[in-house]
Design a protein around this nucleic acid. Structure first.
Lengths: 191, 191, 191, 191
DNA sequence: AATGAATGAGATTTCATTCAT
DNA sequence: CATGAATGAAATCTCATTCAT
């Protein structure tokens, strides 16, 4: 969490960190480069964060919140479970396609050696409503009965890997392809 | 690839590297620690590999081959597509459950900043037969029509995330749970 | 020397610098901490002093003057050399007991790497009358014949070390102990 | 304490650190300079010590032991308390004259901000025999009755300040001067 | 004058790699 | 081949000082 103010700078620093991690991995993330890319002096990074670790953890937290927002959105509430789920899935898939760096950052973070357990828990709490939604779907007989964590893992694992393929250029996702992906997701979990 | 011989040492070095990467990520992998954990001197690492990058790439290649072997196995060939697929899926899932460090190593490698493109291609070539198998399934109308890469991404993304949950202790997979996971996978891709 | 005015702030800055030096040494003295402890902004320190060195030198000079005043005091002039000396010694000892931070600051200053030779000489000039007094004592046969600088070194070295013990809590000085200390001092220099 | 070996290097590092501290104070001690002066690479310093603080603490400990050896020496044991004390005093005074850097290092260390309490206690334990000797002298009525710590403080405070004067060139100690200094010391503590 | 965020030179520390033994 | 102490380039971090407000 930033010590002081100037949200513009905080944003620029976050953006720089995320992009650099995506390009070179956590091992390649250098404070000097973050500084340069975000247009501040190295010392300034330490005005906002007490260490590289703190910076990375903050980026994680903020990004996770953003991701939660891409899934959990009042506009996505529809008549049926299916329709709501579909809106959420497309929300998430679209987010990942648009911001694959953020998706990658978050994914790699957990195995980066920079984890703060407290932050993980804090970040996870943003997804509470999603859990509730899925549990309701199970009660209504819409989707398979099993640990909600597994369902979420199955769903986002699939999304992530597909988006990664797309980013790497190994595939080229068309409108159609996306729908088939959704069908795989839905067919997998529906009863 | 190792410069010289003594397969025992090579194995010990691989094991150490994999375990350490899982614990601290690539950013945290230190040659000194690899040496200590594998019971050799730092200098010795450079007898076997010309650099950290070379070591990591070799571990990647060897592990990818091992993984391919866990999926593509003559014993898994059955009467029907479904049965063969099932055997393969369980083969992979079982491998990941048993060696999550290897699964994680391989997964993170691509975004580690240590990639050698040549190695990636070489590693991927091991999975050719799997592609053929899936394409045949599509021709036969067993599974959905779409880019095979996407199907693979969908499947292994799901497996990885579920295994990671299990490793972290967020869920506890029983015999039953595994079957439901398989059903999610199969229901997702079947026609 | 302060650039401008507001004696309250100057005093607060001095106090802060002295206390911090006592706690962490000159190597640990940070302008940011001086600012915080004295209740001003870092920038303000540079309104009053052109550099850290200038600040430290000013504190040194002012404190040395204060110390001279604790020793050289018209009220201390008595009938005999012994009585005057005794009054001075108690004056100095009492001062050091009351302001050990100032004593320590001054003591460490010389080896701090922040010395300005001019300031040292200026500070020393305050002690001229003490030199005269001691020389007179030698002429009268009250105290041993030897370089006055040595006598002063002997006396204040003793006082400082005893006070430091007391500050550290290694000893607990009572009224009695102080008298014995004085006797050590006097017996050492008397003829 | 050194991690590994090569006592030559350890000695060179110690010597460099002591000389540099004497010249520029603790604030001026730079690892790069210690490395250069002792003829090793900066990295090598960290092979021997885990931090600047550890290095400084080790120098302190070793130097304190050396100092204890300069005072507590079987050859100094004489017929009378007076004679033994005299030998010890000259031993210490001589040591300080010969190695003023070490004396200064030790003196400044305590207020350097680099103290490790454990080390202080460990270093002090070397002086146990001296305490015993002084206590015996009090029992025999040779010297004044008072806390031994105060006597030691009085004595070494005097020695240090006189030696410092000499080093600075403010005085020039002759054979004679030294004897007078001893007389001040002895007259001060004798009964 | 006063502020405190921003700076960047410079310090400490790390770690992949080398090399004498 | 094996070793591990030594290296030094490069990274992280600090902090005196500046400067826009």
């Amino acid at each position: 969490m930033p010590k002081l103010k100037d949200q513009n700078k905080v944003n620029a620093i976050h953006r720089a960190a995320i992009e650099l991690v995506t390009k070179t991995g956590f091992s390649g993330l250098k404070m000097a480069e973050v500084a340069k890319k975000s247009g501040v002096a190295t010392g300034t990074l330490y005005v906002y964060y007490k260490s590289k670790e703190a910076l990375i953890n903050d980026v994680y937290l903020v990004t996770k919140e953003e991701i939660a927002g891409a899934i959990i959105n009042p506009e996505y509430l529809k008549e049926t479970f299916y329709e709501t789920f579909k809106a959420m899935w497309y929300g998430y898939f679209g987010y990942c396609l648009q911001y694959p760096e953020k998706m990658l950052f978050v994914e790699q973070f957990i195995y980066s050696g920079y984890i703060s357990e407290i932050n993980i828990a804090k970040a996870d709490s943003n997804f509470e409503p999603l859990d509730q939604f899925l549990i309701q779907g199970q009660k209504n007989g819409d989707i398979k009965e099993m640990d909600v964590e597994i369902i979420k893992a199955h769903l986002h694992g699939s999304v992530h890997e597909i988006v990664k393929m797309n980013v790497r250029g190994d595939i080229r996702l068309e409108e159609d392809g996306m729908h088939t992906c959704f069908n795989m997701a839905w067919d997998g979990i529906k009863t």
